Simulated scan of single mutants.
Amino acid sequence: MNEGSPAQWLAAAQKIDARIEKLRPEADRHVVGQHVISQVLLKRFAAPFGSDGFKLVPFNLDHPDRLHKMASPRQCGKVPHFARFASASLEQLWGKLETRIPDAARAVDRGDVFQHEQHVQTLKDLIALHLVRSLNYRKVHERIFTKVYTEQRTALLTDQSDLLRLAVLQRSGLHLPGPQGLAAAADEILSPHLANFENGADFRARIEDTFAKAKEMISDAGLEILVPAAGEFLLGDTPALAIQQSETRTAFNVAIGDSTSIVLPFGPRHLLVGRTPPLRAGHRHRGDGRLPQPTSDRGGGAARLLPAPQRPGRLRPRLPKAGHPECQELSLPAASPSSRAWPGEGYRDGRRKPAGCHGCGGRFLVTAEVLRS
């Protein structure tokens, strides 16, 4: 997610700093293994495996030939030290939402979810959660901070150097001795922000703030739920994707405000789609069953469950029974931008056996990175 321009980032610095100071007494209250994919969502993709409970098979796209072992939803979708500062209270914030998901999920399975506005809002909030609580967001945060920090330090040493010299003179009565003194003064000014970045405090405060903003933005979007015309949906380690589609191209991981839709697999049979901007009441897409049609004139427009577009040649891979003929046909795409782009699609091509056919009938959790503790 794009967190805004450098100017917007700096404009929010005072608010972020205040939040960091409020969190500082609980800085060491920490949860080591933090889920970036909600366990309740993972369980919707898991299959029962005897007395061992529900199981998934994490599949690593970077190592497709590795032996892929079964794991419980509790073991999957975790990142050690995802947030390194006051993470206990952050987990409590996520938990307030996640406790609402089971009721919403039952409404989705019954097919009457759009009759319950509170469940619709829960699903929208769930999309926002998985957009923000993600490895992608953390990478964006790190990239933007590094960019802004470098720009500000450069400005203090060039365009704003006279102001910096004057500030030091007024504060200490000393003239800065050459470029080294100027650099030392710039580093001193920026050091609190750098320290908050390095200890994870800046990320902790900003992810909470961004989650609140994402919920607000997605709340105004129309929610649709698609069902597959064939096969089933899979889940990836970045499960929610903001997509911008036009007649000529499709871009992934764009800013919410630039997206045309935000998708989140919600089980093998359902895909949550937040349409941005909201669909107008009564508006219809093409009526061939390939795109949703609104059935409600409430704000944002609700949609009934409709088939998702079929993607020729792509089926959700499933671990077949040992010795099943499908073992000879089933494979997953190698790591590539296209294979990572859509959450969890696999395909059949007869080229390779699946790594580790356990005969368990479990479902795959497709990952581009190892997300197990």
Rank of each mutant, 00 (worst) to 15 (best):
2 N>W: 15
4 G>C: 11
5 S>Q: 02
6 P>Y: 00
7 A>S: 02
9 W>L: 00
10 L>R: 02
12 A>Q: 12
13 A>Q: 13
16 I>A: 11
20 I>D: 01
26 E>C: 02
29 R>Q: 15
30 H>Q: 11
32 V>H: 15
36 V>E: 00
37 I>H: 03
40 V>L: 05
42 L>P: 05
43 K>P: 06
47 A>I: 00
58 P>M: 04
65 D>S: 07
66 R>V: 08
67 L>T: 06
80 P>D: 10
80 P>Y: 04
94 W>P: 06
96 K>G: 14
105 A>C: 05
110 R>I: 05
114 F>G: 01
115 Q>A: 09
116 H>C: 05
116 H>M: 07
117 E>V: 13
118 Q>C: 04
125 D>L: 08
127 I>Q: 02
127 I>H: 03
129 L>S: 04
133 R>W: 08
135 L>R: 07
139 K>S: 14
141 H>E: 13
142 E>Y: 11
143 R>Y: 15
145 F>W: 11
145 F>Y: 15
149 Y>P: 05
153 R>M: 12
155 A>G: 00
158 T>F: 04
159 D>Y: 07
163 L>I: 09
167 A>V: 09
170 Q>F: 10
172 S>Q: 08
176 L>T: 08
178 G>T: 09
182 L>V: 05
186 A>I: 12
187 D>W: 13
188 E>W: 06
191 S>C: 07
192 P>F: 15
195 A>D: 09
195 A>K: 13
197 F>Y: 14
209 D>H: 10
211 F>C: 03
214 A>K: 03
216 E>V: 02
216 E>N: 10
220 D>N: 12
225 I>G: 04
229 A>S: 05
231 G>N: 05
232 E>C: 13
235 L>F: 08
241 L>E: 03
245 Q>P: 01
250 T>R: 05
255 A>V: 01
255 A>T: 04
258 D>S: 15
260 T>D: 03
263 V>H: 08
271 L>Y: 08
274 G>I: 00
278 P>F: 11
280 R>D: 10
280 R>T: 07
284 R>P: 04
289 G>N: 13
294 P>L: 06
294 P>A: 09
297 D>I: 14
297 D>R: 12
299 G>Q: 02
301 G>K: 00
302 A>Y: 02
303 A>Y: 09
307 P>T: 13
307 P>R: 08
308 A>K: 00
308 A>R: 01
308 A>S: 15
313 G>F: 12
314 R>E: 11
315 L>F: 14
322 A>V: 12
323 G>Q: 06
325 P>R: 13
328 Q>F: 15
329 E>L: 14
329 E>W: 15
332 L>N: 04
333 P>L: 07
335 A>N: 04
335 A>K: 00
338 S>H: 02
339 S>W: 13
342 W>Y: 08
345 E>I: 10
347 Y>N: 03
348 R>I: 12
350 G>E: 09
354 P>Q: 07
355 A>T: 06
358 H>R: 02
359 G>S: 11
361 G>C: 06
365 L>K: 01
366 V>D: 00
366 V>S: 04
369 E>I: 13
369 E>F: 12
371 L>G: 00
